[in-house]
Design a protein around this nucleic acid. Structure first.
Lengths: 150, 150
DNA sequence: AAAATTTATTATGCATGCATAATAAATTTA
DNA sequence: TAAATTTATTATGCATGCATAATAAATTTT
């Protein structure tokens, strides 16, 4: 536990990014999570709320509350999906579209600045490591307590 | 916004790790955050609570509540720091030490399994990228609105 | 087609992480 | 040394992210 662990580096770095994103979002009256949601919604057509969780890297169930608050703030509208009685289609309002641009700027700038400091090799390795971690977890290579078939 | 962005990969991967850690911690009646705190406390001598935030990759102020709940659960004790009237020293209880071992197993296993899947080059690049991101943020290379001297 | 299962959502309660505001003690200035 | 500033903590309120439990609608089995 002496050296820096992978999980620590990942956690500390992400939290650092999250604090910065929230700080920036606050400048235009938003939050990081709302910004990510806005960016995950197609600005031109209705987006099935089902697709938002994966696009934001979170569980689908975690979205309900945030979509509700976004609707209350007038950022989005939720309309029934004509093709699926269970589903919902999310639409950006003009106000939401505006805030989406603000969020997009922040995200683009961050990614751009970071990319400038990295070589292709480093960047590729980074994405490979992310993928490896996700695989290790989804394949339950670590804790096989439950069952090997799952 | 088409390709995978750095921030997305970081967020999604970290959340995935966090869900897994919380799931594992639940098996022995704990949580990820409590586990990290336990691992950041020296098992042999009092740990200044000041040092815990940085060790856990979070703001110092975020710790107060979790230390309080850990104390209520009998995992730690907080005693005044004889060398600093403002400060607190955190001590593990025998129960806390036990839970610390459980947490340590989970973290060690995760890091071990992931490392096995990665080359030294990938691992080094990963840590370099994490460092670069932290630098970009701490040096405010992105949003210089406030001031250049800070 | 009826029953069983799966899928999409929402509602809740819990645990965090943070910013902000208070306090109190230690340091630095004046 | 008195005053101003900085540092260590705790208390609060807000926004998340998640697991779990309910519902309701769509699919798959019988």
């Amino acid at each position: 536990m002496q050296e820096i662990t992978i999980d620590y580096a990942l956690r500390a770095t992400w939290q650092s990014v999250a604090r910065m994103y929230n700080e920036e979002a606050k400048k235009f009256g938003s939050t990081m999570a709302v910004g990510f949601a806005l960016l995950s919604i197609d600005p031109k057509k209705g987006t099935p709320s089902t697709s938002l969780g994966p696009k934001m890297g979170m569980e689908a169930t975690s979205l309900s509350r945030i979509l509700k608050s976004m609707e209350e703030k007038g950022l989005i509208e939720r309309r029934p999906n004509p093709d699926d009685g269970r589903g919902v289609l999310v639409y950006l309002t003009p106000f939401g579209l505006e805030k989406r641009k603000d969020s997009k700027d922040v995200v683009l700038r961050f990614n751009e600045v970071v990319r400038e400091q990295l070589s292709d090799q480093q960047l590729n390795a980074f994405f490979e490591v992310m993928e490896t971690i996700n695989q290790v977890i989804s394949e339950k290579k670590i804790y096989k307590n439950e069952s090997t078939t799952n």
